[in-house]
């Protein structure tokens, strides 16, 4: 991975965020959030229109109304034995194809490193 991001710090920031909106029971909310697996969190990030919105362009199992601009995301583990390459593709697709329509998620700060790592974990299950 690009950055050996400590997931603890992510969990902490999620907790902080939740804490600020849900005053009633921040601890409980954080616990529930923490209960979601990394893969599930990655899926949410990948599907959310305001986050990855990968479905705008890619067919992904479990996603509806997918676009056809990019190739369907299938058999990722087989096609990307090196996970880092998958990370790099999502971080900045311009490295492989300077004219790509795929947004440079990392450099343009559309997703954070941690978010991309989670998306990679999810995509890797496809």
């Amino acid at each position: 991975m690009r950055k050996k991001a400590s997931l603890i710090s992510t969990a902490a920031s999620v907790a902080a965020l939740l804490g600020s909106v849900s005053l009633a029971s921040p601890a409980l909310a954080a616990e529930e959030e923490g209960a979601k697996s990394i893969v599930e969190q990655g899926k949410e990030i990948a599907f959310a229109r305001k986050k990855g919105n990968c479905l705008a362009c890619h067919a992904i199992e479990g996603g509806e109304l997918a676009g056809t601009i990019g190739p369907p995301l299938v058999a990722m583990k087989m096609r990307y034995p090196d996970k880092q390459k998958l990370y790099d593709q999502i971080w900045d697709a311009r490295v492989k194809n300077p004219h790509t329509i795929m947004p440079p998620f990392g450099p343009h700060e559309i997703l954070t490193e941690e978010e991309i790592e989670k998306v990679v974990e999810f995509i890797y299950t496809l």
Partner: peptide, 24 residues
């Protein structure tokens, strides 16, 4: 834009394809 996409990307090089359910 933050997404770094040109008009031409959608309406020329990917025209006829779908972005979500929208045909370009």
């Amino acid at each position: 834009g933050q997404l770094n996409i040109a008009c031409a990307d959608c309406h020329q090089y990917h025209s006829g394809q779908r972005a979500r359910a929208n045909v370009l």
